[in-house]
């Protein structure tokens, strides 16, 4: 196995996913399949290859900069309009720190 159930639980924790017990076993099985295929990359020697993070084009250095001017934004009502719970124009979330 490329990945144990214990590792699946650790990664789920990092990803903020509360996997159910039955999901953990299935996830380990599914990830094992694709990770085994991914091993194929080790056949290639990539020592001197420059990593490619993005498809980039030649543009002027300032191409993505603009004047910092005030402009209309979403209204508060629009910005929080899709939230599950709001209060007084803010997002409302459960307590973070137990007192």
């Amino acid at each position: 196995m490329k990945i144990t159930e214990q590792e699946v639980r650790r990664v789920a924790d990092l990803a903020n996913l509360a996997l159910r017990e039955d999901e953990v076993a299935r996830m380990a099985h599914d990830l094992d399949g694709i990770l085994t295929h991914i091993d194929k990359l080790n056949e290639l020697d990539t020592t001197d290859v420059e990593p490619m993070a993005q498809v980039l084009f030649d543009v002027e250095e300032t191409a993505t900069l603009r004047e910092d001017q005030e402009r209309p934004t979403l209204t508060n009502a629009d910005a929080v309009g899709n939230a599950a719970v709001t209060s007084g124009g803010y997002y409302k979330v459960p307590r973070v720190i137990e007192r």
């Binding site: 903020n16 929080v80 899709n82 939230a83 599950a84 997002y91 979330v93 459960p94 307590r95």
Partner: peptide
């Protein structure tokens, strides 16, 4: 938080 659906099962923010 921002997108419409929230679990009702949880107590703390992390949950």
């Amino acid at each position: 938080v921002r997108y419409t659906t929230r679990s009702t099962a949880a107590g703390t923010l992390s949950d």
